[in-house]
Amino acid sequence: MRLPSESKQQLFLKNLWSENPVMFSGLGMFLAVAGTATMDQAFFLGAIVLLLLLFNSLVSSAVGELFQKKVPLWPQVILSSILLSGLAVFLSGAFASLPDNTRILYALLAASPLVYSRSQLLSYNTTIDRALFDAAGTGVGTLAVLLAIALVREMIGQGRLAGFSVFPPAPWPLLNTLFGGILLTGILLTIFNLLVKNKK
């Protein structure tokens, strides 16, 4: 729950770790499972999530401040899909170097609850700067989770990292499949439960 007394920094840090969207609420689990085959893919999708969160929160809080109204979900979905389509034109080169499923996951972001979570829950009801810090915490938190999973998958599943060979024969190639994404997300959630949820 967001308290009016929470500072912008507290909002950012809360979403980054203790209320991380993927580990605390299970939002964007499909990205953690399917969008983490390589570090490049995880960074690309995480950065797009961050951008969409900031965009939606900015729109929602600006409309909230100017008209004291909440932007309904559907106009936001259409706006986000237009933004994604426009961006895809400039990013076509990047798609070519990423795994095959990246284009589908990218398009699926337009319907993902993750990118609308902050704008529908908090942003319309607060100032623009607080909304942006809140969205940034959520986006960076998601990006960090994706990168953490991708790091392990790439190192152990493919035996390489950032283009360099780390373990010449990959120690566990199964992690390179979607099973690796599912398993590592499960392990990460277990660690999160141990460190955060069970302490509360």
């Binding site: 299970g26 099973f179 599912i182 499960g186 277990t190 439960n193 141990l194």
Partner: peptide, 22 residues
């Protein structure tokens, strides 16, 4: 164990289901 309850155990089971489909 408490930390495995809920989503973590379900994700581990989903992984096995995925292998079965494969």
């Amino acid at each position: 164990h408490k930390p495995l309850k809920g989503w973590p155990s379900f994700l581990l089971a989903s992984g096995i289901l995925w292998i079965a489909f494969q």
